[in-house]
Design a protein around this nucleic acid. Structure first.
Length: 472
DNA sequence: TAATGACCTG
DNA sequence: CAGGTCATTA
């Protein structure tokens, strides 16, 4: 066992240092340049080179894009001597570090635990945490219980031990949440459920939260972690390693609470408190989630500075997209109809991006647009039928039926203040459809392309608040 | 060839 | 909303 432990430690530090140096490298390389370039490159407009009156080559597009950015209402903070600044993107750096850490640790832990369980566990099944018996989940037998497309989307081997029911513990708490068909949307524990104002965060951190995602802050004692791992195993009631789901039969979240309290006692400041009072940054809540790790002694009072030093240590990387992510995406649509994948990555920092996730997010916005344009066309045609002659009569206000339809779709809970800019864009879109149809341009099979080309230039920046992993 | 968007369908 | 298909682009 000691040997294994040593290996675990070595591997731990090995990955730790490796990732650390990687991070430095990337920072030196300066993300601003590459990212900026990439962004500009991506900002090419759709339908370029198609029929229509598509004047302007790529260079013009480049400049036009910059212009549009400059005059955009929310873009002042983003422009820097005519160049787009994306320095903030650098904050994404530690993500890989976390993955490496988590994977290495869980691999090692699995190794240790296998050994451990085959010896000690076989003799006495005394793995108890508090009053709650721990069902040792080898992961194998659970794997096929709920086949999910989610699993298919992952190539990492760690997924093998991460069944889906793991996410469904939140089912009972928020039955109203799942109102749509979300075959690829994974449930998220009620931690950040936006509409439940009086919610109390019951767990020290969400079930899927990784204690090891404390990241790279100094005052952690590896031995304590190892101790905990050995005590409770990587699966069992620990149940929160990023790569290791908790046991299935934990229907009540409270069954987890007691053990935690019994073992460690809660931090001086509860997650609920922070979630309630520090909502603006929302950092407090997530930070607490990352910090409420038993055996990890840390001054909660210094949370602020801690979070500043390691903005991402507290982030709670998601394996899949949750209903909250969907909701957030819909709200983002009020600002951007054509988000680049970079924007998506920026505004979903708690999502572990891969090809599949990116596609799914892009698909979401594609679906959003589809609905949007369908509504526009429908209302434009209806207005024409109703005898509207002047484009100026085509307006979109918050009282408009059109807006109500859109708001119902993207902001069903109606708990978000839709920006005025969206109304403007909607109105422009409606007018574009109106004139196009009025001029019988819709006889052209590709008549909508011209409209799309206009609309895609009207994106505005998504507010910073959306960068929080906690839904608004 | 990979990424992306529109369109259609369930 | 997801799947699939097709077209476009780099």
């Amino acid at each position: 066992m000691q040997k294994l432990l040593r290996q675990l430690q070595e591997k731990f530090f090995q990955v730790y240092n490796l990732s650390d140096s990687e991070q430095e490298d990337r920072e030196e390389a300066g993300p601003a340049n590459s990212v900026e370039h990439d962004n500009v490159a991506r900002s090419k407009e759709p339908f370029e080179g198609s029929d229509c009156e598509l004047h302007g080559d790529l260079n013009n597009d480049f400049e036009k894009r910059l212009d549009s950015v400059k005059v955009g209402p929310r873009d002042t903070a983003k422009t820097d001597n005519g160049h787009l600044s994306f320095h903030k993107e650098g904050k994404n750096l530690p993500e890989t570090l976390k993955y490496e850490l988590s994977r290495a640790v869980s691999e090692s832990v699995d190794l240790v635990f296998k050994k451990f369980s085959s010896t000690v566990l076989s003799q006495s099944s005394q793995l108890h945490v508090g009053q709650t018996p721990v069902h040792v989940n080898t992961g194998a037998e659970k794997k096929t219980q709920i086949p999910s497309t989610q699993e298919l989307s992952h190539t990492e081997d760690d997924v093998k031990s991460r069944p889906l029911e793991y996410y469904e513990s939140g089912e009972a708490q928020m039955p109203e949440d799942q109102t749509e068909a979300l075959s690829l949307v994974v449930r998220k524990p009620p931690l950040s459920h936006p509409s439940s104002i009086n919610q109390t965060v019951k767990r020290p951190y969400p079930l899927h939260q990784a204690p090891f995602q404390f990241g790279y802050s100094a005052p952690l004692h590896e031995n304590q972690i190892l101790e905990h791992l050995l005590k409770y195993g990587p699966h069992g009631n620990f149940g929160s390693l990023p790569c290791l789901p908790p046991a299935v039969d934990r229907s009540s979240p409270d069954s987890v609470d007691l053990p935690w309290d019994a073992i460690t006692g809660r931090p001086k400041v509860s997650s609920a408190q922070i979630a309630h009072h520090a909502r603006p940054t929302a950092l407090g809540q997530v930070a607490m989630d990352g910090l409420c790790l038993p055996h990890v002694k840390m001054e909660c009072g210094d949370l602020q500075s801690l979070a500043e030093r390691n903005p991402y240590m507290s982030l709670n990387i998601q394996e899949g997209l949750t209903p909250n992510h969907l909701k957030k995406a819909k709200l983002m649509f009020f600002y951007t109809r054509y988000p680049s994948s970079n924007v998506l990555k920026t505004f979903f920092p708690d999502v572990k991006f891969n090809r599949c996730i990116t596609s799914q997010l892009i698909k979401w916005f594609s679906n959003f647009r589809e609905f949007y344009y369908i509504q526009m066309e429908k209302f434009a045609r209806q207005s024409i039928v109703d005898g509207v002659n002047n484009v100026k009569d085509m307006s979109v206000t918050r009282d408009s039926e059109l807006f109500r339809a859109l708001n119902m779709h993207y902001n069903k809970a109606n708990d978000f203040q839709v920006p005025d800019r969206f109304l403007e864009v909607a109105e422009i879109t409606l007018q574009e459809f109106f004139t196009a149809i009025s001029l019988a341009k819709d006889t052209d099979p590709s008549w909508k392309k011209a409209i799309y080309k206009v609309i895609c230039k009207l994106d505005s920046d998504v507010p910073e608040e959306f960068k929080s992993s906690v839904c608004l």
